[in-house]
Amino acid sequence: MSIPAPTVYVVDDDVSFLTAVARLLRAGGYAVKLYSSADAFVKDPPPEPVGCVIVDLHMPGMDGMELQEVLARSSSPLPVIFLTGHGDIATSVHAMRKGAEDFLTKPVNREKLFEAVQRALVRNALQRAAGARDRELRALYETLTPREREVMTHVVAGRLNKQIAADIDAAERTVKAHRASIMAKLRVQSVADLVRLSQSLGL
C-alpha cells in the first residue's frame, strides 16, 4: 500500500478566500483540496488521513467546531487549523483545548500559515508513524495464544514463574516455555521491554 502525498484540505464558505488560500498553498508546494462547506467535507472525506485541515470557524450549516468534533471521532484524526475572520479568546481557547493545531485569524500572512501547515503535517506524519508501530505491535500481540496472553499479564505484573504456575495451576516449566514463546513472538529481549510494549498496547 503506497502512502499518498500529504494534502492540505481547506474548508471555507467564502469562495474567493478559498481560491486565494489554495493558490498560496499550491505556490508553496502543497497539494490542496477545497471544500466550500463542512458538510461537503464530511460527505466526501479524504481517502487517507494524510495531511491537515484548514477550516473557517463560522460557516452556514456545520461550523468549524462541529467539523473538528467529527474529525476527532475518527481513528486517525487529521490535525485542524482554524482560520477565522474574527476569533475571540474564549473560542480559540476552546478550540485549542479540543486539540486544534493552531488558531489563526484572517488575514494571515504566508509565514504563519505555512508554519502552521508545516507543523500540522509533521504532527500528522508522527501520528501516522506512531499509528503504524502501534498496528505492528498489535499484530504481533494477536499471534499470542490466550494462555500466553494470560501468562503475559502476570509477567508484566512482575510475578515470579513459581507464583504464576501456582496462580494458573500449571507446572513451573510450562510457564517458562510460555514466557520464552511470548518473548520470541513479540520480539523483545527483556521483561523491561515487554512492560514498555504492554504499556503502549494499553494493556
Binding site: 478566500f17 486565494a20 493558490r23 477565522t84 484572517k106
Partner: peptide
Amino acid sequence: HELNQPLGAILSNAEAAEL
C-alpha cells in the same frame, strides 16, 4: 469578519503571486 474575508483573500493572493 466581513472585512477580514476579502482582506485575507487579498493578502493570500498577493503572497501567492510573489511565490
